[in-house]
Nucleic acid binder design. Structure first.
Lengths: 256, 256
DNA sequence: AATGCATTTTTGTGATCACAAATCGGGAAA
DNA sequence: TTTCCCGATTTGTGATCACAAAAATGCATT
């Protein structure tokens, strides 16, 4: 075992991880505005670590900074989703090509194992596990390529599309998305057929994001059916109870 | 004219721009370690804006943060350069494809004008202008696609490869790099021939970064012939004179 | 001369504060 | 009711400080 490299324990990193997690698991709603002091209080830290974590997420495109310097979860348009789709096709396509070229039997077996877990989760209708395993499946695949910079970029792209991937459930998932594509992909890996592997992953990503893009309203905006009502409600909305000291929890959009 | 959106005047952004500029113009040497206090003093600001700017650059891959939490300009290996090359082929290839599909006569004319400026700079051996115009040429091209996220990603990639692009001069540039490729690219744009346009840009990027990668020593490391001596010199090296209040200036690697 | 250890210095991190700009609130005028 | 304006509040920004970890330095020992 390697000498156990120290791992980053800075508050900044903990906050970063927490925010990232909240983002991908749908605890933040697109369009939601975030203030430093609110997040700092919610996480029980000072402004400092929140500032740094937030800045990093802005740099990665996970949040956007408005000209007035306030930070919010990006609101997507149809065009933006399609742009991200094409980028993901290019980048993740490249990753599977490289993976296919070098994949070992053990690596392929590991990916297959995760593919089976997806089927299992889907069988029982467990969408949360489903999404988690989908992510695990893709990243196990990309990791095979051993291209650290490429992997980091893919993580950034997933972070940007993340808040919108909830829109795939349950309609898109239940309709016509069986395990066949993944089976074909695994076969391509075994044959070291880079072109075929790319074809499969492109179909996967392309279908999903095209579906999301097609949810755009006539103005081109995509507003996920969200826990936040369409119109801002001035309802009494009880005061934030007591300080939610627990780290990974956030209340949703206290105002749009 | 649009209502002149406010433009970010924060110190953090100024520092960011300054560091970015120093990085792409070769004022920092790969491997150079940077301390917050040194940069803050050099730029005449407090630690705060430097911290935020550095963090952003780390998030973008322009700097790397070592486990000991110190920041330095990344040292590239041959494998890393080749990885970046392939990513750039994929991403910038995608951008020119999209650009070729929608380019107008005026946009093409603008790119052609810059291409001529490259030839002019090269004729008189002005490498600095050459590099600046090369960048301008590429980004004018990519901007045609009108894909903001894609453009941001390309900027990030250029930032990462930037410190190593100096290695192309003068040997690579003078040998066999005429304006023919750019002429063919412009022709492809006019014909809206996306595939041909991609082919040209891929040759351009591929040749350059393959050349850089081939400079790797036997250990796979790439250490540019730099203004900093190979071995750290303990020479008297006069004290940093007076505080270099001017913003965009940095002294080079005061220690490796 | 080379090595190991203790001390000093440097450096990143996080908290707190002051300030200016942005936002929100309510009341007056249309 | 709607619009506009002014005051109060919120919010991001940058500076400064305290502290712990890391690095550098000096010295004694082998």
């Amino acid at each position: 075992m390697p000498p156990a490299l120290p791992a980053d324990t800075s508050l900044r990193t903990q906050v970063y991880d927490s925010l990232r997690d909240s983002l991908t698991s749908g605890k933040f709603v697109p369009g939601q505005k975030l203030t430093l002091r609110f997040l700092a209080k919610a996480l029980g830290v000072s402004l400092m670590p929140v500032r740094e974590a937030l800045r990093r997420l802005v740099a990665e495109g996970a949040f956007e900074m408005r000209p007035n310097r306030s930070v919010r979860v990006p609101l997507m348009t149809r065009a933006k989703i399609l742009e991200l789709r094409d980028i993901r096709l290019a980048i993740e396509g490249l990753a599977v090509e490289k993976a296919a070229a070098v994949a070992t039997k053990e690596q392929i077996a590991r990916v297959r194992r995760i593919a089976l877990e997806i089927v299992a989760a889907r069988d029982v209708g467990d969408n949360v596990t489903d999404r988690k395993k989908i992510r695990e499946y893709h990243f196990a695949l990309y990791a095979i390529a051993e291209q650290p910079t490429l992997l980091r970029m893919i993580e950034g792209l997933w972070l940007q599309t993340g808040p919108y991937m909830n829109l795939l459930y349950p309609k898109f998932i239940s309709s016509s998305r069986g395990p066949e594509g993944r089976t074909r992909l695994l076969r391509a890996l075994q044959a070291h057929d880079a072109a075929a592997a790319r074809r499969e992953i492109e179909r996967d990503i392309g279908d999903a994001l095209t579906f999301v893009a097609d949810l755009a309203d006539s103005a081109g905006n995509i507003a996920p059916a969200s826990p936040v009502a369409a119109k801002r409600r001035r309802a009494p909305s009880k005061a934030p109870a007591t300080k939610p000291r627990g780290v990974p929890l956030f209340q949703r959009a206290e105002r749009l």
